[in-house]
């Protein structure tokens, strides 16, 4: 402001420059009140440049900055929701896979149980058949042996009869009598059966 004062002083009276400058009313105001904010001569300048600055900022923001940032934010929101959707999909896929795995596992278990039961039944049937066959064979062999034994026994008793009859006949002959074959046979038979 001193510059301005210098200017006016120079225009009015060239002599008054140093000593009396303080006497000047505007200079007094500057030194005492000292509020450049209240110096109305600068208002037009400030307001003009303020309007220029605001217009420039408005132009920069509305033409470039704000649409760009809005786009970035929208893009990010889109990316995030896409990612979340993808994650959901992957999760459901994983769940599906797990369900398929569990099902396969259950199927395999059922299959193996079925195979085991089948094998058991087969083995059991075979075993039963073998046992039956063995029983049959054993029974056959037993019958055969019994027959043989019976035959042996029959032949043995026959031999006993013959020996007894011969012995009886010999005894009778030894006692000096003529052996009656028919009477001896009948006597031996009754003795043997008795």
């Amino acid at each position: 402001m001193a510059n301005e004062t210098h200017g006016t002083d120079a225009a009015g009276d060239a002599v008054v420059l140093h000593g009396q400058v303080v006497e000047h009313p505007t200079e007094l105001q500057h030194v005492e009140a000292g509020m450049p904010q209240l110096d109305f001569t600068t208002y037009a300048n400030q307001i003009f440049w303020l309007i220029v600055a605001l217009a420039a900022i408005y132009w920069i923001l509305s033409k470039i900055a704000l649409p760009r940032i809005a786009m970035i934010l929208a893009e990010r929101r889109g990316t995030i929701s896409n990612d979340i959707a993808a994650a959901e999909e992957l999760k459901s896929q994983a769940q599906e896979a797990e369900a398929a795995y569990q099902k396969a596992l259950a199927d395999a278990k059922a299959e193996s149980a079925r195979i085991v039961a089948e094998a058991k039944a087969e083995i059991k049937a075979e075993l039963d058949a073998a046992i039956a066959r063995a029983d049959e064979e054993i029974a056959a062999k037993t019958a055969e042996s019994e027959k043989a034994i019976a035959a042996i026994r029959a032949s043995a008793s026959e031999s006993v009869e013959a020996v007894a009859k011969d012995t009886a006949a010999a005894l009778v002959a030894a006692f000096g009598q003529a052996p009656d074959q028919a009477a001896i046979d009948a006597a031996v038979d009754t003795r043997v059966k008795g």
């Binding site: 510059n3 200017g7 600068t42 300048n45």
Partner: peptide
């Protein structure tokens, strides 16, 4: 060091 005009 001029005056402060509106365009200065």
């Amino acid at each position: 060091d001029g005056e402060v005009h509106w365009y200065t």
